[in-house]
């Protein structure tokens, strides 16, 4: 193959890579052409050719900067946002599915809409701790740390979240702000309201419980309080997911085991009580496949 033919074939290759969007590969191929031309000063029009190839390389470099730059995520149409929300909510439990949908919106950069969804969840008392944390994440993703702080302050002065939840949220927000290099003095959480109002809502109804603490009475973590988010609640039976990796925990929380020291967290209150493990089922499908669903019957609050 003559030098001219070699250059022609390399240029053809580089053009094809460029047409395929393989800009780095196209640039590498043009660099080969350039090196070859530079080594052949007697090549006809070599200066002109060198200049033309260098121009193409510059163009590709500009293109590569664009490709490597973090993509700007636009606000998608509400229809597309709904599609994302529906496609990425996998759980059968409606509340967990709603949380997954909202999280998907956030992961795809639809923070404003995600905020809306998390606020709805929090208002309905669904997974409040997770909803609240995600609301703060969205504010920070929207570059509004002040909104996150204002929101936290509103929660502290309101009664949507329990003291324990607010303390966790405070630590969480503090951590987020520190990572962003923002120093803020977040107000401490006050004591919750009177305990008699805490454990029951309307007469005979158990309040919606968002998370639960269980003090273990056996196993290596004996005496320790372990906390779980409640994924489902039907009357006085709550369900929590325990990872299959938590073998000791699963062993300690056998069916019919009485749990004498429990703490129940609801959006408006915390109460102590006892419960009994009324069921333990292995999850057969979905993202939590292999983990265990524990049903706990609340015996007194």
């Amino acid at each position: 193959m003559s030098g001219q033919e070699y250059i022609k074939s390399l240029i053809k290759e580089a053009e094809l890579y460029q047409s395929q969007g393989l800009l780095a590969q196209s640039k590498d191929t043009y660099l080969k052409v350039l090196a070859f031309v530079k080594k052949s000063p007697n090549f006809r029009n070599h200066k002109k050719l060198e200049g033309a190839i260098a121009d193409r390389i510059r163009g590709l470099e500009e293109g590569l900067v664009g490709v490597n730059r973090p993509a700007l995520v636009p606000d998608l149409d509400p229809e597309v946002q709904n599609l994302i929300k529906n496609l990425f909510s996998f759980s059968e439990d409606q509340n967990t599915a709603a949380m997954e949908g909202a999280m998907a919106l956030a992961r795809f950069g639809q923070y404003e809409r995600a905020l809306e969804e998390f606020r709805k969840l929090l208002k309905r008392g669904i997974l409040p701790l997770a909803a609240a944390k995600n609301i703060l994440r969205c504010h920070l993703a929207l570059s509004s740390p002040n909104d996150a702080i204002d929101q936290y302050e509103r929660w502290v002065s309101g009664n949507q979240l329990s003291k324990q939840q607010l303390e966790k949220i405070r630590d969480f927000l503090q951590g987020l702000l520190e990572r962003k290099g923002i120093k803020a003095s977040l107000p401490a959480v006050d004591e919750p309201g009177p305990p008699e109002a805490l454990n029951r809502g309307k007469e005979g109804d158990v309040l919606d419980i968002s998370s639960v603490g269980i003090r273990l009475s056996e196993g290596p973590r004996k005496g320790k309080m372990v906390e779980f988010d409640v994924t489902f609640q039907s009357g006085d039976v709550i369900s929590v997911v325990v990872s299959a990796d938590e073998k000791e925990l699963l062993e300690a929380l056998k069916e019919n085991v009485v749990l004498p020291d429990m703490q129940f967290y609801s959006p408006i209150a915390i109460f102590k009580g006892r419960g009994v493990v009324s069921g333990k089922t292995k999850i057969r499908s979905g993202p939590k496949q292999g983990d265990y669903m524990l049903d706990i019957k609340i015996e007194s609050g």
Binding site: G21, L76, V80, L83
Partner: peptide
């Protein structure tokens, strides 16, 4: 077919 947010002709999110 829904192509969710592509940058040029590169897929950023997903197609469905």
């Amino acid at each position: 077919m829904v192509s969710i947010d592509t940058q040029g002709d590169r897929t950023l999110f997903f197609d469905f």
